[in-house]
Design a protein around this nucleic acid. Structure first.
Lengths: 239, 239
DNA sequence: CCAAAAGTGTTTTCTTTACACCCATGT
DNA sequence: ACATGGGTGTAAAGAAAACACTTTTGG
């Protein structure tokens, strides 16, 4: 049975039985200063030492795959309850040079503010890259990223998942700019407002921005229970 | 290294190196007499002998996963070039009672007429089940099927893939009934006509139905190259 | 007062939905 | 003639797109 070093809650590295020939790779998205970014890690070992790649790792023998992805992300970011979606399995026989390994891709959406608070203590070298400035990555990670981005662009239009990239409280303009950045399009502010408000998906917090050098905007919040109720009534989110 | 019996082109069973702990399971959809159906196989071995399950199998050591799915479906149906979409990996540690096995799910869409022509020679016991009359399946196959159906319903609205379930030449009513059956809704005939024709996705064959006891309908064909061209121009299929 | 973003109003166009109705063909 | 599905027309309601304009606030 294959074993690998797995980081425990305590931070210790422990030899643990893991599934052979299957790994997980995560595309971690963040949104800051109007830019969509992903989190890459510098590879510590092997021929491709020093090159950047997607964060990932092995699956423990008795662990579900979503659970494994959550664990790996906790190790990397210090965050729990990250929004995750499995992409699919990538299994080109040549994708990994050392042997046959299939990897399961995930999209993770996180709030940059949370990351900035929690992440200090990570030992591994990790860095955010703007989506338009991604370097050559190890193995097939550029392909996985391409697929991941396509999927994100599709998903963001058919389900209200973009909110996972924004602070808890946000303005309508922030939300619109998130859409503009992800979909790489320009939108009309008045029309966007009306469309999103018409859905009655957002909670008006009766609060306003502070410390902005222009008229302060109202703050809104996304409420998943409202979305669930609307969905039951036949509502379907569409952009 | 794990080995398993794999059926070769010749029909022979040969001991072949396969990936350990990873399998493939396929949800094969067909459409006949207005009903959406899936193809199940009777399990030949183990405690659950005699029960129905999704067709599937092992991945050869040097074989891509899409290629493995195609091979398994060729063995089962005699058909090449089946329309395939990977769903995702299913990896609950308890899903498979004998040991830890992750399975990769696929949706396959086939034309029943092709199957009926080619399939006679299969040894394994396979049977079509109406989507509303699916029995209890082995392992987590009911869960995989649930996911598969949800995905099919989503995909069929955002890409022109339904055609893979219809004969090469079809009438607009057949197409509409396919949508009605998959999405489990009722549609308005005149409006459906206009909507689909407006997309200019279908080739009018200038041919008519024969042997029908009512006014014969025009036959149409889906042309993927037309769809590609429209897509490049920014067209996006939506239902 | 100006810049910058917030927010409202309005008009035009395109889609969607609902439904009435005529057409062609085999029995 | 009538049943069955094929196919066209149209009017009302709703959504999307484009853009002009007013409001608030800090500097």
């Amino acid at each position: 049975m294959k074993k690998a070093l797995v980081k425990e809650e305590s931070g210790e590295l422990v030899e643990t039985p893991v599934m052979s020939s299957i790994t997980i790779d995560c595309v971690v998205f963040g949104f800051e200063n109007g830019s969509l970014e992903i989190l890459l890690v510098k590879h510590g070992r092997g021929i491709r030492k020093g090159e950047w790649g997607l964060p990932g790792g092995w699956i423990k023998e008795e662990e579900g795959i979503d659970a494994a992805a959550h664990r790996l992300l906790r190790e990397l970011t210090g965050l729990d309850n990250i929004y995750l979606e499995q992409l699919k399995a990538f299994g080109d026989p040549q994708r990994f040079p050392v042997g046959r390994v299939i990897t399961i891709g995930y999209n993770a959406l996180i709030k940059r503010e949370d990351y900035n608070v929690k992440a200090g203590f990570t030992a591994s070298e990790a860095k955010w890259f703007k989506i338009k400035e991604i370097p050559d990555l190890i193995y097939d990670h550029n392909q996985i990223l391409d697929y991941s981005l396509k999927r994100l662009r599709r998903r963001v239009r058919q389900a209200p998942i973009g909110f996972n990239l924004l602070p808890e409280k946000f303005t309508l303009l922030q939300l619109m700019q998130l859409y503009e950045e992800i979909l790489d399009i320009e939108m009309d502010k008045p029309n966007f407002r009306r469309k999103i408000l018409r859905m009655k998906l957002l909670v008006d917090l009766n609060e306003k921005q502070k410390d902005v050098s222009h008229r302060a905007a109202k703050l809104y919040q996304f409420d998943n229970t409202i979305y669930q109720k609307l969905t039951e009534k036949g509502f379907s989110f569409e952009f």
